[in-house]
C-alpha cells in the first residue's frame, strides 16, 4: 500500500515537471513575425523626405501587418555597408536600401549573404537576391510640370536638381514634358546643385532662376531642395516640393509636391517578399500603382477647369498617350 502511494506521488512529480517553462528563453516566446530592416539614406530620420517616408511605410507595416521593423542611420553606422551588414546579421525577411547612393554597398553585402533577401528603392540591381523598386518620377514630374505651367504667369518655370544623374534627369524630362503639354511655348530653366544636402546652394540657384523671371520652381534635390522652396517663399513665388509633401518647409510657397510614395514602396516590398520568397527583379511604381501622386494643391486659386486639365493628363499617362522624351 505504501508503495502505491509512493509511485503515485512520483507520477505526479513527473507530470508537473513535464510542464517545461518558456521563461528561460524569451526569444522563443516571441512568435515568428516578419521583419523588415531599412538602411535610411543620407541624413536619415528628420529629412522630411525620403527617410521619413520610409519610416512612414515601416510604421504602416508595423501597425497593419504586424511586422517587426528595424532601421539603421548613417549617423549611427558611418557607412551604408555597416548598416546593411548589421541588419543582414539580424536575418530579417528583407533588408532594404534607400536611394542609389547606397547601391554599391548594398550589392557588396548582398553578395556576401546570398540567402538573404535584399531590396533597393530608387535604383536597379541585377543581383538575384536584390529586388529593385523604382518610381516613375517622370510621370509625377509630368503632372508637376503641368501644374507649374498652369500656374505660371511669366511663362517661365524653374527646375533645380540635386545631382546630374539618370534618375534626376527623369524628373527634369517629365517636368518639361508636362509643362510643354500645357503650353508648348513655356520656358523651363534647369540647374543642378551637385549636392543633396546644401540648402544654401539651393537658395542661390533658386534666386538666380527667379531673377530670370521664373515664378514656379520645382526642386528634386533632397535637403538642398528645401533651400529652393524657402527662397521661393521669400520672394512670394510658388514652389513644388518633391518626394514627400513639403508644405511645412515653406507653407506659403509650396502649392503641391510630387509625391514619391516611398511608404508604399516599403509595404510593396514587404508583401512581395512575403508572397514569393527570395527573388531578384525590378518593379516600377507609377501613377497606376499609386506609387506616384501629387499632393493637394494649395496656395493657388485653382479652378475646376485646371483640375480637369490635370485629370486629363493623368489619363493620358495611364493609357500611354502622353510621351515623355
Amino acid at each position: 500500500m505504501k508503495n502505491k502511494y509512493r509511485s503515485m506521488v512520483l507520477g505526479m512529480t513527473i507530470v508537473l515537471a513535464g510542464c517545461t517553462s518558456v521563461l528561460d528563453d524569451p526569444a522563443s516566446a516571441v512568435k515568428e513575425r516578419k521583419e523588415i530592416g531599412v538602411v535610411l539614406s543620407d541624413v536619415g530620420l528628420g529629412d522630411q523626405s525620403f527617410s521619413d517616408a520610409a519610416m512612414g511605410g515601416m510604421l504602416l507595416l508595423r501597425e497593419k501587418d504586424d511586422w517587426f521593423v528595424d532601421y539603421r542611420e548613417l549617423s549611427e553606422t558611418k557607412t551604408y555597408e555597416g548598416g546593411f551588414e548589421a541588419l543582414a546579421k539580424e536575418k530579417p525577411n528583407v533588408v532594404v536600401g534607400l536611394g542609389f547612393m547606397g547601391q554599391q554597398d548594398l550589392e557588396k553585402v548582398a553578395k556576401k549573404y546570398p540567402k538573404q533577401q535584399f531590396a533597393i528603392v530608387d535604383a536597379v540591381s541585377d543581383l538575384p537576391n536584390v529586388l529593385s523598386l523604382t518610381f516613375s518620377e517622370d510621370e509625377g514630374s509630368y503632372l508637376a510640370g503641368a501644374v507649374a505651367a498652369l500656374e505660371s504667369e511669366t511663362k517661365t518655370i524653374g527646375f533645380v536638381g540635386g545631382m546630374r544623374s539618370p534618375l534626376i534627369e527623369k524628373f527634369e524630362n517629365g517636368y518639361r514634358a508636362g509643362a510643354k503639354a500645357i503650353d508648348p511655348e513655356i520656358e523651363v530653366l534647369v540647374d543642378y546643385a551637385e549636392d543633396f544636402a546644401a540648402p544654401e546652394k539651393g537658395n542661390q540657384l533658386a534666386n538666380a532662376q527667379m531673377k530670370r523671371k521664373a515664378d514656379v520652381l520645382y526642386a528634386a534635390a533632397g535637403l538642398t531642395g528645401s533651400g529652393v522652396l524657402q527662397a521661393a517663399e521669400k520672394k512670394g513665388h510658388k514652389a513644388i516640393g518633391v518626394d514627400t509633401d513639403q508644405t511645412a518647409i515653406a507653407p506659403d510657397a509650396v502649392m503641391t509636391s510630387m509625391l514619391k510614395q516611398v511608404d508604399l514602396a516599403i509595404t510593396e516590398i514587404a508583401h512581395q517578399v512575403e508572397q514569393e520568397g527570395l527573388q531578384g527583379g525590378h518593379v516600377t511604381l507609377g501613377i497606376k500603382e499609386g506609387g506616384i501622386a501629387l499632393a493637394p494643391i494649395r496656395n493657388a486659386e485653382w479652378t475646376a477647369d485646371e483640375n480637369t486639365r490635370i485629370e486629363e493628363l493623368k489619363k493620358d499617362l495611364l493609357n500611354g498617350k502622353a510621351v515623355i522624351r
Binding site: A29, Q48, M55, Y71
Partner: peptide, 24 residues
C-alpha cells in the same frame, strides 16, 4: 521638426521592444 521625426526612431525601437516584450 527633424528632431521630432528622429524621436520616431527611438519610438520605433521602443515599439519593437514593446511588441517583443508583449508577446513574451
Amino acid at each position: 521638426r527633424s528632431h521630432a521625426a528622429r524621436i520616431e526612431g527611438v519610438l520605433s525601437d521602443l515599439n519593437t521592444l514593446h511588441a517583443k516584450n508583449g508577446e513574451f
